[in-house]
Computed example of a mutant assay.
Amino acid sequence: MIRLFASDMDGTLLNDKGYISDRTINAVKKLQKHGIHFIVNTGRDYRAAKRELDAASLSCDMICHSGACTYDVHGNGFHIASLPKSIAKQILTVFERHGAFADIATEYGKTSITDKNTLLSYYKNEVFPAVEQEGKVYFRTWHDFAMMVSKVRFFEGKESLLGCETPIYKISTTFFDQDKINALKDDIHGIDQLHAVSTSKNDLEITHVNAGVSQSLCKPSN
């Protein structure tokens, strides 16, 4: 008997236009009506994932930040696996050595230790070409992209972020050049206590090793 159904968002729950279709909405609601626990497991942060679910009038538990944070249907976190600052510093140092942009996820959502122009250049030269190659839709419109950029929390360099109490959930990057991403992966694997995965041939997502056990800690909603 099926008791749990888990789904990724991008390229799975969301269609090729970046929406949850009516057919998928009805299928999810049918699962829930029959007592099957439905959960979203995504690399997105909670706010971004919830925005898509709210637009589809769906409610469920969510595993976010590639396993680093788990939330119940009411938005309460019950499993958080943040990166210790000492490990985050090692990761960011390796990123600097490879010229990789650090796409950082914290409790504030998307966070950057560079300025806005550097972030925009990263999306233009690395993310958008890679997304187009993969056939995925991360931003339906330029307005959606602009809204994302407007909500980024900027810190003045890595020491500013590392020196505050803000938890770091995930550090990721995208290189359109596969040789660059492969070289970065090889270097990152030398750091202990990490869970490093790629959702495509062009990216790398890094969380604490405990983030990989989030799926086993899911609990049904009351």
Rank of each mutant, 00 (worst) to 15 (best):
L31W: 13
L31S: 00
Q32Y: 06
Q32F: 00
K33L: 11
K33Q: 10
H34L: 02
H34V: 00
I36V: 15
H37I: 04
F38K: 09
F38V: 06
F38S: 05
I39R: 09
I39P: 00
I39T: 14
V40E: 04
N41Y: 07
N41C: 15
T42E: 11
T42K: 11
T42A: 14
T42Y: 11
G43N: 08
G43F: 09
G43Q: 10
G43S: 11
R44K: 15
R44Q: 12
R44I: 07
D45W: 04
D45N: 15
D45T: 03
D45F: 06
Y46W: 12
Y46G: 02
Y46N: 07
R47Q: 08
R47T: 09
R47H: 09
A49F: 08
A49V: 01
A49E: 08
K50Q: 14
K50W: 11
R51K: 15
R51E: 12
R51A: 12
R51H: 10
E52P: 00
L53Y: 08
D54I: 02
D54V: 08
A55S: 13
A55G: 00
S57E: 15
S57L: 09
L58P: 03
L58G: 09
L58H: 07
L58T: 06
L58S: 12
S59D: 10
S59A: 13
S59W: 01
S59H: 12
C60Y: 06
C60S: 14
D61H: 12
D61Q: 05
M62L: 14
I63W: 06
I63L: 13
I63T: 10
I63K: 10
C64R: 09
C64Y: 01
H65D: 14
H65G: 05
S66D: 14
G67E: 08
G67F: 02
A68P: 05
A68T: 07
C69T: 06
C69N: 06
T70Q: 05
T70R: 05
Y71G: 01
D72H: 02
D72V: 10
D72S: 00
V73Q: 11
H74L: 13
H74D: 14
G75L: 07
G75Y: 01
G75N: 01
N76I: 08
N76G: 07
G77M: 05
G77C: 08
G77F: 00
G77I: 01
G77T: 13
G77L: 01
F78R: 11
H79G: 01
I80Y: 08
I80N: 07
I80W: 02
A81S: 15
S82L: 01
S82I: 01
L83D: 05
L83G: 07
P84T: 06
P84Q: 08
K85G: 12
K85H: 15
K85I: 09
I87H: 10
I87V: 15
I87W: 03
A88Q: 06
A88P: 05
K89E: 14
I91M: 01
L92P: 02
L92F: 01
T93K: 07
T93Q: 13
V94M: 07
V94E: 07
F95G: 12
F95R: 04
E96C: 11
R97A: 14
R97G: 04
R97H: 10
R97D: 11
H98G: 01
H98P: 04
H98L: 03
G99Q: 10
G99T: 04
A100I: 09
A100N: 06
A100Y: 04
A100D: 04
F101N: 11
F101P: 10
A102N: 08
A102P: 15
D103C: 07
D103Y: 14
D103Q: 10
